[in-house]
Amino acid sequence: MKFRILCALLIIFSLTACATSPMGRTQLVFMPDNEVDAMGLQAFSDLKQGKKISQDTKENQFVTCVTDAITREVGGTWEVVVFEDATLNAFALPGNKIGVHTGLVELVDNQDQLASVIGHEIGHVQARHSNERMSQKLGAQMGISLIAAVAAPTTPMGQTAVSLLGVGAQYGVIMPFSRLHESEADMIGVELMAKAGFNPAESVTLWQKMAQASQGAQPAEFLSTHPSHETRIDDLRAHLPKATALMQQARAAGKNPKCAK
């Protein structure tokens, strides 16, 4: 028995790999990125089949304009879909897929506030947070079964797999990113939006609006895996000098998005 456990541990450790996040943090990830991307593609396909997609031309143009400006900073081809959903949510999945809910579009006042959310969600993908979380939670030995599980999202295994991608709430299973991942995505996101020429100060305004919209419904920080609104706002304010300098450099280089809501 002990020998089998030792062998299993040796296999897992042999498959592990150290990576570094965009913020310089050491990560432990061992899921093949192509498998995680395949899961993201399958999950996004299921969402498009199961959720109503907005046909509002102006709404779609606004979201696409903001998203295009930010994704140019990270490269690759990204697909963005606006879903008819009143909740204040957006997400980005491995495989370069982005979903934005109409409720969030209605909440934001301008392009910069939407950019702060899009940048944050892309930050999760850039930092490989889904891969890191799968590596931590499921272990290498379950990797092969994950893609099949995502293809059947209503099964218990499928719900677990999809929730690890960051869209679990769509299937009634909520497994939010950790405080560390959320804070890291905030910092990556505010820098991404600034590099695209958006005003990073609006990220603070956005989270103030989110706090107001929650109307005190958010649990105390120590009971939640997410940073409190106050902590998030304080951290973003502390990062504004660097982000503002990046915005000024971007605008000097001619990057000045004009996305009309």
Rank of each mutant, 00 (worst) to 15 (best):
I5K: 15
I5E: 14
C7F: 07
L9K: 07
L10S: 10
S14E: 12
L15H: 12
C18K: 07
C18H: 09
T20P: 04
R25F: 12
T26N: 07
F30R: 00
F30L: 05
M31V: 14
P32A: 05
D33W: 00
N34Q: 08
N34A: 09
E35D: 07
V36P: 02
D37S: 09
L41Q: 09
A43L: 02
K48E: 14
K48D: 11
G50N: 15
S54G: 09
S54K: 02
Q55Y: 03
T57M: 04
E59T: 14
Q61F: 09
C65L: 09
V66T: 14
T67I: 03
R72E: 14
E73G: 05
G75A: 02
D85Q: 07
T87Y: 04
T87A: 11
F91R: 02
F91E: 03
A92S: 03
A92L: 02
L93N: 02
L93F: 02
P94F: 00
N96R: 05
K97C: 04
V100L: 03
T102H: 04
E106A: 13
E106V: 12
N110R: 00
N110S: 01
N110Q: 05
V117W: 01
H120G: 13
E121P: 07
I122S: 01
H124Q: 05
H124I: 14
H129G: 07
S135R: 03
S135M: 13
L138P: 05
A140T: 11
A140P: 05
G143K: 00
G143D: 04
S145L: 10
A151T: 09
A151S: 11
A152S: 10
A152N: 08
Q159G: 11
Q159S: 01
T160L: 04
A161Q: 00
G168I: 09
G172R: 03
V173C: 04
L180A: 09
L180G: 12
H181A: 08
S183M: 09
S183E: 13
G189K: 00
G189H: 03
L192Q: 12
A196P: 10
G197I: 15
F198M: 13
S203R: 04
V204K: 04
K209F: 05
A211T: 06
A217T: 13
P219R: 00
H226G: 06
H226Q: 06
P227K: 02
S228M: 14
H229C: 08
E230Q: 13
R232C: 08
H239Q: 12
L240Y: 04
P241I: 12
A243T: 08
Q248D: 10
Q248W: 12
A250D: 07
A253Q: 15
G254D: 10
P257H: 08
A260L: 13
K261H: 15
K261Y: 06
